[in-house]
Write a protein that binds this DNA or RNA. Structure first.
Lengths: 265, 265
DNA sequence: TGAAAAGCGGATTGGCTGATCCGGTTGCAG
DNA sequence: CTGCAACCGGATCAGCCAATCCGCTTTTCA
């Protein structure tokens, strides 16, 4: 799964069995699952779906979420299978394609983010609202490799993700307009820039990635977020939240990334 | 070739044939190849290497360079083979492993970058020197997918790349010190930050990637470089070199990336 | 409670790709 | 010119992995 070219699935010989669609298209069955734990109800059925089936569907979804988050969009299905404790037949019944599974997971992730943006809009301080947006995004990128890989304006061309993306863009525009009106950001900053800036922060975050290598701060990415934020406001440099890493730490990070493997279980 | 875990090559059954090492370890046989075109001499032999062998080796190297640049580290070997017009036996004789080939290509790329840094150090203006460094890096990331993937502090653990990386770090430190002495950058910026900032710019660059989608500027990344640069200097915002993209353009970029395929030939 | 429908899971398939093998060819020293 | 070692290239191998198939089990509903 190389991530570009989601179009012609490899060796699809016959027709595709249609999945038993448990949760309808529109979000908000149960909003934004708290983290890692599987909600035992995805409810809002379209075809009732037997009890054990629903249970398994959720097991798969939860397993996929952690697996994708830890290893990125390229985890082997077998990994997810092991984690979920179901057979491959079961998985592919609910999600006919690996991409379908990834999308289902990303939908949840995007919904979580959307909730955070809404929260940011409720903040009194317009600058703080923007900071919250970018911080949240970076946090999510730091802990979810699949999200990291699908963020920014590239996103793949899937209706449901498209929609969510647009909704978020609208909200982000609101956030930015407010900040501009208050004069706390440079006014040549456009809403369209935000996805790219998020990608930029993601780039730095990715380099810091392995959540916590011994000597290093798992929050190093905040430092680079700081630099970028300072680039967004008119007045220039502000204090940074993290000290830079030492060369030794950088070496350790690189080594950790080279050997990176499993982690869960 | 998933990029992490360069350690246990898949299914290596027997012992490995040692390659006929044409160019010695130390760089500077012929410095920094101008672009795409194969230099017909990599010279400085260690075992003379027959004439046709050397010719083929260079063909492979050149093909690999373009293939890796266009499609990233995951191009199929077959692609490179087609481009080079040689058989797989030939390729694997010179580069026993796909990684070996990639490393050979990256060595050249890194050497090119190193030359640019040296040039930046020769610039009178210390701020401009830093700008040149970051701009060059971004340019290279924009046009070379393999470089983009291997940049930042993660780099894989290969002696020869390690070395080059360290040499560049030293030079970059010099560049930064000079700029700090002149007071043109904030002084909480450390040399160790540079690789992360480069990764950040790379993140944005990647989002802009498909060199030129119709309506969009192929230089959009400069805009985000601009934001980051403004975050590095004490005085704050400066004019940006590019207008933001429109929503329609962003859509086009995404679409282009989704269908991205081949391109050469 | 019983039977049919729905679901389960793992053995299996098919295809992709990195790497190897080996019969034939070619450059080079003497 | 000649012999041979080095080299060529493509047929082939082997492992990996997404996706399918099908005999058996579980749920559901009358």
């Amino acid at each position: 799964m190389v991530l570009p070219s989601w179009d012609a699935p490899p060796h699809t010989s016959g027709v595709r069995r249609l999945p038993p669609t448990a949760a309808g298209g529109g979000r908000r069955g149960v909003q934004a699952y708290p983290e890692g734990v599987s909600p035992d109800t995805v409810t809002e059925s379209e075809k009732p779906l037997r009890a054990d089936a629903l249970r398994n569907r959720n097991k798969v979804l939860a397993a996929a979420r952690t697996a994708f988050a830890q290893q990125g969009p390229d985890v082997a299905i077998s990994e997810i299978l092991k984690l979920a404790g179901v057979g491959s037949g079961t998985l592919f019944r609910h999600f006919p394609t690996k991409q379908d599974l990834l999308v289902a997971v990303l939908e949840q992730t995007f919904d979580q983010l959307d909730d955070q943006i809404v929260a940011a809009l409720e903040d009194e301080d317009p600058w703080q609202g923007l900071v919250t947006l970018l911080t949240t995004t970076a946090e999510m990128q730091a802990r979810d490799a699949a999200f990291l890989a699908s963020v920014g304006p590239e996103l793949f061309a899937v209706e449901s993700l498209q929609q969510r993306n647009e909704r978020m863009m609208v909200r982000m525009s609101g956030l930015l307009d407010r900040a501009k009106a208050a004069g706390v950001v440079r006014d040549d900053l456009a809403a369209e820039d935000l996805p790219f800036l998020i990608s930029a922060i993601g780039g730095a975050t990715q380099s810091c990635a392995p959540a916590s290598v011994v000597g290093t701060s798992p929050d190093l990415w905040r430092r680079y977020l700081g630099f970028v934020l300072d680039g967004l406001r008119p007045q220039g440099a502000h204090p940074l939240p993290q000290p830079p890493p030492t060369l030794a730490q950088m070496k350790a990070m690189k080594a950790a990334k080279a050997s990176m493997r499993c982690g869960a279980e």
